Amino acid sequence: MQLYNKLSAKERAILIDEAGTDRLTLSFYKYAHIGNTEIFRNYLFIGWNELDVLGRIYVAKEGINGQLSVPAPNFEAFKTHLDSISFLKDVRLNIAREQDSKSFLKLKVKIRHKIVADGLNDDTFDVTNKGTHVNASQFNELIEDPNTVLVDMRNHYESEIGHFEGAITPDVDTFRDSLDIIEQDLKDHKEDKNLVMYCTGGIRCEKASAYYKHKGFKNVFQLEGGIIEYARQIEEQKLENKFLGKNFVFDHRRSERISDDVIANCHQCGKPCDHHVNCANEACHLLFIQCDECASKMENCCSTECMEVNRLPYEEQKMLRRGKKNSNKIFKKGRSEALKYKK
């Protein structure tokens, strides 16, 4: 019984090229009570591995959160498999606007304490008492209302390359950091303003809306399906697009363009740019924004120090990394002091 990946990412990429089959990148989530997470995890891995599904899926007692890549010919079989699970029947699937057959190169189904790291004690409030879900048309109307406060529930590196017009974009590194900051900043408007939230696919707003209602906010709304679903609806229904720039996504694509606006800058030279990369030095691997000119000049690295390390023979680089933990810069997402034009 196979419960792990037998192929490396490089080997999988070669097989994808050889297959020549289009793949669909999609995501979904569902809060539900899962009694035995290990059995459920194994069941998913076995079933999806047979369908050549790749992706990153988190399973917890509170539910499931998945980002996946499915071969287009296997999509109906994948959907049938999902529908066979009672609490996932007809679950909304957010289909990516920009497809890439190599968005994921491994199947990882992991057991977690929570499907989103929110730092909340769910026993202290009713997580089912969520905010009102609104579609793209309703969302556009709401954010035109002067009594609305629009809040981006994502992290700084996500909102830096794209966000809705007029949104509050907390300068935070993690979702859990934003919760208390937003409550404090809006404490005087719990009853007289509409609190409207959005995130990538909707999952962070599910928990946040219930939390803010528990904290006394009276009029709480959330964008159903997040930015991904919003982009689909405005295109299908010919609605006005209120989103500027790109939507950050958590796969190898890193982003999807929603509008032609470029609202960010290269972290190294300051030129308009919204292209995220990871530093080529494996000991750093910092996520940052880099234009083509700087990528060439800096050899895809975030600093001269990393560039010098990356020029060393691979075995020598491995020796330098041996016994050392990853630098905190990896998790700061563009916070490195080496970046002159970071946000």
Rank of each mutant, 00 (worst) to 15 (best):
V262G: 04
V149H: 09
Q99H: 08
T132R: 12
F125H: 00
K187H: 13
K333R: 13
R322P: 00
H214E: 06
D118V: 00
N49W: 03
C301H: 07
N74G: 01
L286T: 11
A167G: 11
A283I: 10
N281I: 05
L68H: 08
S69H: 04
K329H: 09
G216D: 05
K6H: 12
N5Y: 07
K246E: 12
F288W: 10
E62W: 05
A96S: 13
I234S: 02
E160A: 15
L150D: 01
C205D: 05
E293F: 08
L68W: 06
S137H: 14
L3W: 09
R56H: 13
S103Q: 06
S327F: 07
E299L: 05
Y314H: 14
H133M: 11
L68M: 15
V116G: 02
V116E: 01
A167V: 09
K102H: 03
N326L: 05
E76D: 14
A72E: 13
S86Q: 07
M307V: 06
G270D: 12
I34P: 00
A19Q: 07
I115D: 04
Y43L: 12
I258E: 10
A117Y: 01
H133L: 15
Y314F: 15
T37I: 12
I289G: 06
S27P: 05
V116R: 01
N140A: 04
Q2G: 00
R41A: 02
K130G: 01
D177L: 02
R92I: 14
L150C: 03
S178T: 09
M197I: 04
Y43F: 14
D123S: 14
P313T: 08
D192I: 11
D292W: 03
R253N: 10
S259Y: 09
V196Q: 10
K79C: 03
I64Y: 01
V116D: 01
I168W: 10
D123H: 02
L339P: 09
L150K: 02
N65G: 07
I46Y: 06
T128A: 03
G166K: 06
D145H: 11
Y31N: 00
L93M: 15
F217L: 10
